[in-house]
Amino acid sequence: MATETGSLHKLLHKGEVWRGRQAAEQLRHRCLSSGFPQLDALLPGQGWQASQLVELLYSDEGSGELGVLLPLLAELSQQERWVLWVDPPHIPYAPALLGAGVNLDRVQVVRSNSRRDRLWCLEQSLKSGCCSAVLGWLPAGQEKAIRRLQVAAVEGDCRGFLFRHSRCQSQHSAAPCRLLLEPHPEGVTVSALKRRGGWPLPPRLIPVSPVVSQTAEPDAGPARLTLVGTST
């Protein structure tokens, strides 16, 4: 991670990166590499910006929505502040998080009782200044709320990630960055629907597949996959 940011600085220094109108503003925020060069290329500032709300749109769980974030969470969880998961749809599975380098001591999972509580919770956490990242799952039709959350994220210097169904992509959103995720045999494709300081870009393939390491091996022949009887 450190070398990624290091190389980023180098690139910026050489002036090889396009800088938009708000380049000056962007530089005020630290960006953290996503851990995937393909994804960094999509993101303004070559990584996840601080104090920003990002919307991740996908149709079903399993579309790489965690895969693209895990390197960032691993980095952030080294800080003192919390990484808060608000109402995730399934259990964030500790062995996988740990395997990705996430420090579980900083992770908290929050279960709210109602939609109102959930928004309250997201807002409180984002603006509290106690969280390095807040992950939230929101249903459709929360446009007004999203604006408030973006304000809260800036106030609390927190990275917010809103996970929403891909059918929300047509709805307006106040989130400065909106990414659409779609599963792909080799990983996930990411399209930037909206990004502050840049134009929308075509989809990119991010290699987050769990079985990549297997298929990448040459010379192994076809994997022998057999069902083994449960008896002796």
Binding site: Q214, E217, G221, A223
Partner: peptide
């Protein structure tokens, strides 16, 4: 032994 990561290791060892 059908343990975690067993099949990948098997291929690697053969190689």
């Amino acid at each position: 032994l059908l343990e975690n990561g067993d099949d990948g290791r098997f291929q690697q060892q053969i190689r």
